[in-house]
Design a binder for these strands. Structure first.
Lengths: 225, 225
DNA sequence: TGCTAAAATAGTGCTAACATTATTGTCAAC
DNA sequence: GTTGACAATAATGTTAGCACTATTTTAGCA
């Protein structure tokens, strides 16, 4: 059992916000599975907070769309339906494109040149040989840098929300045949455009990359879900 | 005092969700002003719900970013700062563009032709003469149709959230010199593209329209805020 | 008058107890 | 085996009371 700081314990973030962030994390990583029941007393016990606080947390998750509550019967973690996945990805496409555009406008092109320089022939052959984790780590490192450079908390918050809901499925997509290779091709072109300060071209390429990933999901739906 | 339905009263939406929607509406219309204090017992009294429920509502508003809570001291409705306005508008630009693109793809072009046909020379001269409400009503009618045709609840939810936070200020922008006229020119071109089924062109034009509105805000900041 | 310490205040935070409600389980009748 | 009625159950929903905490106010003193 993890003891959650009371509200007055400093650090700027309220107890509620901390708890919600933790539950979101657990739900998004499927540590709490879709379909799992959440109950106030259990959460209060698990996190060492009052039942009143636990209730607030569940309420916030409800409003956030992550759980479905049934009055007097408890809450269930929502399953994401496939059509929702596509809806979310439409939004992700434009938001990631926007983030990249702003990142290019805000940040020294040398930053992106450094990422490009990491994509050595050795790196590429390791991806081709199946080292998907390597690709994932590098891609996530790049993506974090983009979001930081975009410097827009609204974008960040929305993309976090998007990520919460889609990450498990998209990890499955990442291991589909040739996904990582195709992703790498797109990443190289994207980084080239970014290294030249081409903000609109970068936005377009990022969007193409997102669209390509979701197209792979469509193609292999029966295998992923 | 408005008596809020208990959770079990049917209609699919939980009491919490209804209350949150109502508070969001009041905050977004400045019926509850930025800087106003919210307290649990007052909300419980005002809406005829338990203090526990009121507390949940405030918690949800906190997580939603609409209020700032101070442990043991209460909650205050957040003031939107100008830089946040611009951050939100970046996101709005891409989301509204996406909505228009999807609407064009999903809906019969005749729909948009009908909106275009409403923009008669008489309509235009009334806008030029200062009938801003007419422009606002027609534009909002069009916008609702777009969002409905886009048929993506994720977009809708995010745009609702964006609207909550920006609508009061953007109404002030709407009465700036020439704003409505310039908006109308963009709307005509947009509807022309939509009537021809040009989804990408429509997306581009919608984005230009949003960008133009925010540019007017930048130009007249000192008068608007 | 200005400063400091103590008291008061306002509101949340927590706990306990009981009420309420929707669903599930059991049992008898057909 | 199925159906319907009733009881049990699980969890939330509400209320009440008190604890706790951060801020504001007040009183006393230099």
């Amino acid at each position: 059992m993890k003891r959650f700081k009371t509200s007055a314990a400093g650090g700027g973030q309220t107890q509620l916000a901390s708890l919600v962030a933790e539950l979101r994390r657990q739900i998004s990583e499927h540590k709490i599975s879709p379909g799992a029941k959440l109950n106030e007393q259990q959460i209060a016990n698990d996190f060492g907070v009052s039942r009143a606080r636990a209730r607030e947390v569940i309420g916030a998750l409800e409003v956030h769309g992550l759980v479905e509550r049934h009055p007097n019967r408890g809450a269930v973690v929502r399953r994401l339906e496939l059509h929702e996945m596509y809806e979310i990805y439409d939004v992700r496409e434009v938001l990631e494109g926007l983030a990249v555009r702003r990142a290019v406008e805000n940040e020294n092109p040398e930053t992106w040149k450094k990422f490009l320089d990491n994509l050595t022939p050795e790196f590429e052959s390791r991806i081709a040989a199946g080292d998907i984790e390597l690709y994932e780590v590098e891609f996530n490192r790049f993506r974090k840098a983009v979001i930081a450079a975009a410097d827009n908390p609204v974008i960040t918050g929305m993309l976090d929300s998007v990520q919460d809901q889609t990450q498990i499925i998209m990890r499955r997509v990442l291991v589909l045949p040739g996904r990582a290779e195709r992703g790498l091709v797109n990443l190289k072109r994207l980084l080239e455009a970014m290294s030249k300060g081409q903000a609109e071209e970068a936005e377009k390429l990022r969007r193409i990359g997102i669209r390509a990933a979701i197209d792979d999901l469509k193609r292999y739906e029966r295998f992923v879900l």
